[in-house]
Amino acid sequence: MSSQKSFAKGSTAPGPVAQGSVRLYSMRFCPFAQRTRLVLTAKGIKHDIVNINLKDKPDWFLEKNPLGLVPTLETPSGQVIYESLITCEYLDEVYANNKLLPADPYEKAQQKMMLEHFSKVTPYFYKIPMGRRNGDDVSALEGELKEKLSKSNQHLEKTKSNFFAGNSITMIDYMMWPWFERLELLELKHCMDGSPALQKWTECMLEDPTVKDTKHSLDTYKAFYKTYMEGKPNYDYGL
């Protein structure tokens, strides 16, 4: 994980990407950028990380990605790739070692369908905490999240495997993980009650060296999240 402080507006752009490497423009606490960091780490891809201040983005970064979003990849030839799922699939295609996506087209399609279902889950990780902050009754939203997580639990029970595509970690596990890593931070861990297979999956994921290498401690997450909710995110917290 990069310990480099974030680049903000007015900063000097970093030098060219080294040959034989790839650069990730990231933000240390972003779950979408964490997806790409997980893939880079799991596949042992040589890379450097440039952290971006997402509240005060450098002009040179906006020239590379007009959307101003992380994760963004850059190659030594100046090719730029962005959007978390696209960057991860790109890395898996370009770097043949430790393949994370299955070669079989149907199995690959199954992972993409699971991700499509999961894309309907992630909004709850934002809506529920924001509702609480506004003093809203979020019990109905929590019930909906619990129901959606139970569907993931049913998939694991049906396949009788530790991970979502068998007994080893693949792309789908890494693409879902960043939000589960934040369950305790967001006080949503109880939404996994009654989902023992899913709870076992989280325990297995926490033992993975790649997950260990890319995660923050709960205290660090809490401290950053406090600054984020106050509207003054400290992207460099802990450095």
Rank of each mutant, 00 (worst) to 15 (best):
S2P: 00
S3W: 11
K5W: 01
K9W: 10
K9R: 14
S11Q: 06
A13M: 03
P14V: 04
G15Y: 08
G15S: 11
P16V: 00
V17Y: 04
Q19R: 11
G20L: 04
G20K: 03
L24T: 02
M27F: 06
M27T: 02
P31H: 03
F32H: 09
Q34S: 10
T36F: 08
R37N: 10
L38S: 05
V39N: 00
V39D: 01
A42I: 04
K43N: 10
I45E: 02
H47K: 01
V50G: 04
L54F: 06
L54T: 02
L54P: 03
K55Y: 15
P58V: 06
D59T: 13
F61L: 01
K64A: 05
L69D: 05
L69M: 15
T72P: 00
T72H: 00
P76Q: 13
V80C: 04
I81C: 09
I81V: 12
Y82K: 05
E83A: 12
T87A: 13
E89F: 09
L91I: 01
E93N: 11
E93P: 01
Y95C: 04
Y95K: 03
P105M: 04
Y106P: 09
K108W: 04
A109R: 09
M113R: 14
L115Q: 05
E116F: 00
F118K: 00
F118T: 00
F118D: 00
K120A: 14
T122P: 03
T122L: 04
Y126T: 14
K127M: 10
M130N: 11
M130H: 10
G131V: 02
R133Y: 15
N134H: 15
D136Y: 11
D137Q: 09
S139I: 14
A140H: 10
A140R: 13
E142V: 04
E144V: 01
K146G: 07
K148S: 12
L149E: 02
S150W: 12
K151L: 12
S152R: 08
Q154K: 12
E157M: 12
K158G: 11
K160Q: 13
F163P: 10
F164V: 01
G166L: 06
G166P: 09
G166D: 09
S168V: 06
T170D: 15
M171Q: 07
M171F: 09
D173Q: 11
D173A: 08
M175H: 03
M175R: 03
W179Q: 14
E181S: 05
R182P: 03
R182H: 05
R182K: 13
L183Q: 10
L183F: 05
L185V: 09
L186G: 08
K189D: 11
K189W: 05
C191D: 06
M192H: 07
D193W: 10
G194M: 07
S195A: 08
P196K: 15
A197D: 08
L198S: 01
K200C: 14
T202R: 12
E203T: 11
M205Q: 00
E207D: 15
P209W: 08
P209D: 09
V211I: 15
D213M: 11
K215S: 15
K215D: 09
L218S: 07
Y221R: 13
A223Y: 12
A223C: 15
F224V: 06
Y225W: 15
M229F: 02
N234M: 12
G238A: 06
L239E: 07
